[in-house]
């Protein structure tokens, strides 16, 4: 169903978005004239050199940063509206768990703030989500008892609570070792297929961008702007062994070539 042709209705649409930060040394243009759309149910990876504004772009979609220019629509509404309706789940680079709460209490946080008691009625329950990310039986553990990979699984379960239509992920596996990262990449694809969530995923890894995304959005740095949109023509469903195939190697080489010109 999500294979091949992408559905038309965009879940996220940016049109001419610019973000400027003011500082004592003058203004810095973090993003310049960004226009792109993420189709509903799509998986788009954001790739670019450091300082290209990938994280800023994600924060514009999540209504954490307001754009200086241009328009952002999330599921046809303003980002603030989508945020209030709990259409957006956000996964940060570090898991950002509250250390005094158990795993289960951390996953429940979205139900306890921001009118979440009503918003979280849809979708799977906290226990079910913990099982989905492979942490059944760890409900009572404290974050400090978990490995980095497990903490990030908890934060993914938390982001999925209430069944958001969009998942924004900011280099979620960037701090993990390669073995854990591979496993989590594979599991994330499983979750994506199972939940049908639209995912916008920031990474600085070429392999991750190519392996996960249906579309790679390449950004150039200083100022951050769209360099190229590269469709990923790999068969679905993806699996890790695919990274040895000629098609994947050629794609990775092409991504690297484009990245070097950014």
């Amino acid at each position: 169903m999500r294979d091949g042709a992408l559905p038309a209705a965009p879940a996220i649409a940016l049109d001419g978005v610019s973000v400027r930060f003011m500082s004592e040394r003058g203004s810095v243009t973090a993003l310049q004239n960004i226009s792109f759309a993420v189709p509903e149910g799509g998986f788009v990876t954001l790739l670019g050199p450091s300082g290209c504004g990938k994280s800023t772009l994600l924060r514009v979609v999540a209504d954490i940063i307001a754009p200086s220019l241009g328009s952002v629509r999330v599921l046809g509404a303003a980002p603030a509206e989508a945020r209030r309706r709990r259409e957006i789940g956000f996964v940060f680079q570090d898991a950002t768990l509250l250390p005094w709460r158990t795993v289960l209490e951390n996953v429940r946080l979205p139900m306890q703030v921001g009118g979440g008691t009503r918003a979280a009625s849809g979708g799977r329950g906290p226990e079910e989500l913990l099982a989905l990310v492979g942490l059944a039986g760890w409900e009572k553990a404290l974050p400090r008892e978990l490995s980095g990979g497990m903490r990030q699984r908890v934060s993914i379960a938390r982001a999925l609570l209430g069944g958001p239509k969009i998942l924004l992920m900011d280099e979620p596996f960037g701090a993990l070792d390669e073995i854990t990262r591979d496993r989590l990449n594979e599991e994330l694809l499983g979750i994506w297929r199972e939940t049908g969530t639209t995912i916008l995923f920031v990474t600085h890894s070429i392999h991750e961008a190519a392996y996960l995304g249906q579309l790679v959005l390449m950004l150039a740095a200083r100022p951050g702007r769209v360099r190229e949109l590269i469709p990923v023509d790999l068969p679905e469903p993806r699996h890790l062994a695919m990274r040895e195939t000629a098609g994947f190697v050629a794609l990775a080489a092409r991504l690297r070539a484009v990245l070097e010109t950014c």
């Binding site: 924060r59 209504d63 945020r83 209030r84 789940g89 956000f90 950002t96 703030v113 921001g114």
Partner: peptide
């Protein structure tokens, strides 16, 4: 942490 505050913002916490 700034990220915890961002998380609360995404959750529309008061």
């Amino acid at each position: 942490s700034p990220q915890a505050l961002e998380l609360m913002h995404v959750l529309s916490a008061s």
